[in-house]
Design a protein around this nucleic acid. Structure first.
Lengths: 400, 400
DNA sequence: ATGAAAGCGCTAACAT
DNA sequence: ATGTTAGCGCTTTCAT
C-alpha cells in the first residue's frame, strides 16, 4: 500500500547512470535494498523471510532502509520457488445462497488469523464451472475447501491429490470432511414436534442428489419409529421459495399438522404457500426448517429450525486444512460431525384440538402438476430398521 | 485437474539417468514437453501463450504431447515476468451483509466471462483489516473493486495508483466509481407515498458516515419539496434489525403514516418493532426500504423497496475495471449512475382515514434512550434548494 | 518459424 | 553471520 515517489536511495549509493534501478521501474527489489545497505541480496531476503538467521542489528538496518524505499516483498516471486502463496480457496456452489454466508465468514476469519487470504470461488451450481475454477485456482492455492461440491467423489480425490483438501457437507472417507450432525438435529426436531402433540409428520424433501436430504429423511424415520410417530414424505422439491410454495399445494392434498422441511428456504416458501391456501402457521400446521439461514428469524412467523453450525463449519474446515500441511497422505479419515441446535421460534405450536378445515377449503385445481407424488413411509417397524442400516449414498452430492 | 501418473515421455527421449525430470518431480514443465517434442522450450511457450506465432502443425503436435504428459502452464511462473495473474479482487466490508450477495454474483460472472478469477476479500468492517487485505492482495491481482470501502479517499487513491481500481457505492472523481441512482430512486419512493395520500414522511436514517445515507436524505427533501410534502428525520440508527426496532420506539413518539428507511434491514427491523408496539404495517404505517436485499420479499409484509441494481453494480464495476487495462492514468472520471427501481409490495398502503391510536397506546417508558433526537427538516423552501446544491460529502464512507 | 539466452524477484543450498 | 550461486517455470528479445 505504500507508494514511494521519492526515497530513491540516492544518498545510499550513487547510481551508475544507465543502470535501471527501482527509481525507473515500479517497485524496489531485494537487490535495490541490498545495494543501499551494502549487503548481499540473500541477506535482505533472510531479514524478511527468516529473521533470527541474520544479525539483529543488520536486520534492523535492512528493515529500516527497506521501509524508507517502500520495499515490499513480492508474493509472486516468493511463491515461485517455494510454493507458498498464502492463498486458500473456498469453492461454493452458489455465493448467493444464504446457506454459505456464515460458512464463508467462518472460513475467512480462520484463514486470516492464520495469515492466509481466502479466495472464494463461486461455481454457480455448474460442474463444468467447478472444474474450470479448480483448474484455475488449484495451482495458485495452498489448500482447498469444497463446500457442497457437485463433482464426483473421484474428481474430488484427484484434486485432493494435488492440494490439501477438505470437503464440507459431504462425507468422504479418504478426504477429510466436515458435516453437520444431521441425525441428532433431526431427532431434536422430531422430539420437539412429538412434545407438542403431533402424531404424524410430513417430511418435505429437497434435491434427490443431496447428501443431506437423504440423511435427514433417514434420521426422521428412525426418530419417528422410536417415538412412535408416523412420517410421510413429500417431494422432492427444489430447495427454493418457489419449491416451498409447490410443496404447500402438495401438502394440501395430504395434510398433516406438522412438517419438517429439507431446509429453511423451502420451509419459508412452504409457510407462504400455506398462508395463500388459508392455513395458519403454526395454528394449523407446525413447520420446522433446517440450517437457520439469514432471514429465518425475520420471516413471518419466525422459523423454528435446526440450526447448522454454519460459521463453525467454515472455520473448522479451514483449521482442518491447515493441519494437513506437511502430511500429504490421503489416509483414511473419519468425517467430523459438528453439532446442530434446535431453535424454537414461532412456526411450531401444539397440535390443534380439532382439525382445521384449511386443506379441504383450499382450492387445489384438479390435475395440478406436482413435482412428484406423495408416498407414505413404509410401516415404521419395517422401514426404520432398514433405513438405519443404509449408509450414505456413496456418490451423492450435497446440495445445501 | 489432470493427474499424470504415467505418460512420462519415455518413448520420446531416453532420459539420461540421474537427471530429475517430470517423472520424479510433480508437474511437467515446458522443458519436459520441449524435450519430448524435440523442440526448444520457447517454442512450447509460444505454442501456448501466442498460438499463431508458431507453425500450425508443430503447435498441434506440442499440444498433443503436452496433453498426454498432463502439462499445465503454471500461472505463478507466467505471472512473474508478465504480471498477468488473471486475478481480480473484490473487497467487501462484510460478506455476510446481504447487500453484497448479488453484487458478488454480478462481479463473479463478469470476471469469469473475461477469463479472470475473482478473489473476494472480506474486511469485516475494519479499516485495519482492509489495509491489510490490500497489502496482501494488491500485488497478486490485476485489478481491484472496492465495494463500500471504509478507507479514506486518499488511501483509495494510493491503491488506485498501483492497480486499476473501481469504487462501488461511493463517488470519487479521480477514481472510476459506480453508484446507484439514489436521487431518482428516492424520488420514486416519495412519489409513491404521495400518491397513496401520505402528507408527512419520516426518514429513518442510517450511519452518518454513509455516503448513500446523505444522498438519500437530501433527495427526499428535494422530492418532498416539489411534491409539497413534509419530511422528518429520525436517527441515525445502525443499519441492522436491532437498529430498526430502536427506530420503531423513536417513531412512536413522533408518529407519521409513512416512513422511508435507509435500507431494507433497518426497514424490516422497523416493521417488527412497530408490530411489537401494536402498529399495523401497512394499515397504520407505510414503510419503504432501500436495496431489495435477499429477504425483502419474504418478510412480513413483503417490503416495498427501492431496488438497487445489485447484480448490475457488481458486473458494471468489473467491466469498468477491465476497460482500464492499458490506460493507467488517474484521470477525471464521472461516476456511473445505475438506475434503481421501485418495487411496490405489501408494506405500503393508502393513508388511513382516521389516525390510528397505536402510537399513544404504545408504552414508551419515559426517558428511553434513543440513539439521537428527532429533528424536523428545515422549511422546505429554504432547505431543499440548499440541499440540491450540496455535493456528496467528500470523505464520506459508504455504508451499505 | 524456431532457437538461444537473459531475466522476472525471491529462496536455498553451499561456501566462507 | 553473510556472501555466492543456482535455480523456480515461464516469457521475450535477439539471432538464425
Amino acid at each position: 500500500m505504500d507508494v514511494t515517489d521519492d526515497g530513491r536511495g540516492h544518498e545510499h549509493a550513487p547510481e551508475p547512470a544507465g543502470e535501471p534501478s527501482e527509481a525507473l521501474r515500479g517497485t524496489p527489489t531485494i537487490y535495490d535494498v541490498a545495494r543501499a545497505c551494502g549487503v548481499a541480496p540473500s541477506t535482505v531476503s533472510r531479514a524478511f523471510s527468516r529473521p533470527g538467521r541474520v544479525n539483529a542489528e543488520t536486520a534492523e538496518r535492512i528493515r529500516q532502509v527497506a521501509a524508507e524505499m517502500g520495499y515490499r516483498t513480492n508474493p509472486l516471486a516468493r511463491a515461485l520457488p517455494t510454493g507458498r502463496t498464502s492463498l486458500l480457496a473456498l469453492v461454493v456452489s452458489d455465493v448467493t445462497n444464504p446457506f454459505f454466508f456464515d460458512i464463508i465468514r467462518g472460513a475467512e476469519e480462520e484463514a486470516t488469523a492464520a495469515g492466509y487470504t481466502l479466495l472464494v470461488a463461486d461455481v454457480q451450481e455448474s460442474v463444468e464451472a467447478e472444474r474450470q475454477a479448480l483448474d484455475r485456482t488449484l495451482p495458485l492455492v495452498e489448500g482447498l475447501v469444497l463446500a457442497t461440491s457437485r463433482m464426483s467423489d473421484s474428481a474430488i480425490r484427484v484434486a485432493a491429490k494435488q492440494r490439501p483438501t477438505v470437503v464440507l457437507n459431504r462425507v468422504m472417507t479418504d478426504v477429510p470432511s466436515v458435516v453437520t450432525d444431521n441425525a441428532r438435529g433431526t431427532r431434536r426436531a422430531v422430539e420437539h414436534l412429538a412434545g407438542l402433540g403431533h402424531a404424524v409428520i410430513t417430511y418435505v424433501a429437497g434435491p434427490e442428489a443431496s447428501w443431506a436430504d437423504g440423511m435427514r429423511w433417514r434420521s426422521m424415520r428412525e426418530a419417528a419409529f422410536e417415538l412412535d410417530l408416523k412420517v410421510r414424505r413429500l417431494g422432492p422439491f427444489p430447495p427454493t421459495l418457489a419449491g416451498g410454495q409447490a410443496a404447500a399445494q402438495a401438502l394440501a392434498e395430504h395434510p398433516t399438522t406438522a412438517v419438517v422441511a429439507y431446509n429453511d428456504l423451502l420451509a419459508i416458501g412452504l409457510v407462504r404457500g400455506l398462508a395463500a391456501l388459508g392455513a395458519r402457521v403454526p395454528q394449523d400446521v407446525s413447520v420446522v426448517g433446517f440450517d437457520n439461514i439469514f432471514g429465518a428469524d425475520f420471516c413471518s412467523p419466525p422459523l423454528t429450525t435446526v440450526a447448522a453450525p454454519l460459521r463453525n463449519l467454515g472455520a473448522y474446515a479451514v483449521r482442518t486444512l491447515l493441519e494437513q500441511r506437511g502430511n500429504r497422505q490421503l489416509r483414511e479419515v473419519r468425517p467430523a460431525l459438528l453439532p446442530a441446535q434446535l431453535l424454537v421460534r414461532g412456526s411450531t405450536a401444539p397440535r390443534a384440538r380439532r382439525r382445521s378445515a384449511w386443506a379441504t377449503r383450499a382450492q387445489v385445481p384438479a390435475g395440478t402438476a406436482l413435482p412428484t407424488g406423495v408416498r407414505g413411509a413404509p410401516a415404521p417397524s419395517a422401514g426404520a430398521s432398514a433405513a438405519v442400516g443404509a449408509s450414505a449414498r456413496p456418490g451423492g452430492r450435497a446440495a445445501p
